[in-house]
């Protein structure tokens, strides 16, 4: 095993992120009385967990150099699937969740197959499917929510263990699995290899189409999972779930250091990305800024994150050439 050095943390992009998160935390603590309260921290803990999953579903395709504009639509579809099955069909919660996750996976398969089999770029395919999925969602629900969700279903989303939101603990558990997956599994390593250079990966005996398909399936699965978690968090299943995910997903993933060109993804980065994202959203509220401006802030944030990513890439290239 490679020895763990403190300087590795400093050298990696994650350290800068960590500092940025700390600075943001300090600023918000100083300028807002209500930021550093236990209630607010608790809320932040829950929301950031959801954001991290949303970011992860995007990061899983960004890592192979694709993108998925339908994460929100898939999440919405999974949400109403579970809601419908529980509320109307009275199916046991675990089964409803399983079906909802399968819907997420199916959407991922659909995206992935079109992208790899027909060679159409992911941007346009997932743009189209995001409308298809959303249309199915609205057509099916006619815009109504499913509200009869049993108390037990919200245990994960609303509960806590020793004052820590259970949702956050679940997130940490999933991030550890993610870390292990990318570090040690064949599939994880191949995802990274394809993202870094798909030609070289292909010429090293990696079936690139299969790996891209896998990345879209995983993305759909995680989007579906996030959709189900939303029900657990909110206590209702609303068809509008997922509408605001697109920008969140990109912001969290990119701030978290998942390069747009692929090949890099870290569990720790995603976590910090989600923390920064939620603090900014939360902070804007705390600092009593006009909520109508929020979208511009988020857009700007993505540009800054992409800009930093670009500067880092160029800097590294220059250092290598000299």
């Amino acid at each position: 095993m490679k020895k763990f050095h403190l300087r590795d943390i400093f050298a990696s992009g994650n350290f800068g992120l960590f500092v940025a998160a700390l600075v943001l935390f300090a600023v918000l603590s100083i300028f807002s009385d209500s930021f550093l309260t236990s209630y607010n921290m608790y809320t932040i803990g829950r929301t950031l967990s959801l954001y991290a999953f949303i970011g992860l579903s995007q990061a899983l395709v960004l890592v192979v150099g694709d993108m998925n504009l339908s994460v929100g639509a898939i999440g919405g579809l999974a949400t109403i699937t579970a809601g419908y099955l529980i509320d109307i069909r009275h199916i046991p919660g675990w089964l409803a969740v399983a079906v909802a996750l399968l819907v997420g996976i199916a959407c991922g398969v659909f995206n992935g197959l079109i992208i790899t089999k027909f060679g159409i770029n992911a941007f346009i395919v997932t743009l189209a499917t995001s409308f298809i999925f959303t249309g199915i969602n609205y057509g099916f629900t006619q815009g109504f929510s499913f509200v009869n969700i049993p108390e037990s279903f919200t245990l994960l989303g609303k509960g806590q263990i020793f004052g820590i939101p259970s949702l956050f603990i679940f997130l940490i558990f999933c991030l550890i699995i993610l870390f292990l997956f990318f570090r040690f599994s064949i599939a994880g390593r191949r995802l990274l290899a394809v993202g870094e250079n798909s030609e070289a990966a292909k010429f090293s005996g990696v079936n690139v189409d299969k790996i891209k398909l896998l990345s879209h399936i995983l993305s759909g699965f995680i989007a579906g999972l996030a959709g189900v978690l939303y029900i657990s968090r909110m206590g209702t299943s609303s068809p509008v779930t997922g509408q605001d995910w697109l920008i969140i997903s990109f912001a969290v993933a990119i701030i978290g250091g998942t390069g747009l060109s692929g090949g890099s993804l870290t569990a720790f980065g995603l976590l910090i990305g989600a923390i920064i994202m939620v603090m900014i959203k939360n902070g804007l509220v705390m600092l009593q800024t006009n909520v109508y401006w929020e979208q511009s802030f988020l857009g700007l944030l993505i540009l800054v994150a992409v800009g930093i990513d670009r500067i880092r890439t160029v800097y590294n290239q220059k250092r290598l050439l000299s």
Binding site: L180, F184, S185, I186, A187, R189, R190, L192, A193, E196, N197, A200, A201, S204, G205, V206, G263
Partner: peptide
């Protein structure tokens, strides 16, 4: 080559399936 990757990654890539566990396919 995966130029941005380590020598380890570049040499290992072709033998991953051979040295991975049965069930979880962990290398």
């Amino acid at each position: 080559l995966l130029l941005n990757s380590t020598i380890l990654n570049n040499i290992g890539i072709t033998i991953w399936p051979k040295i991975a566990g049965r069930i979880f396919r962990f290398i």
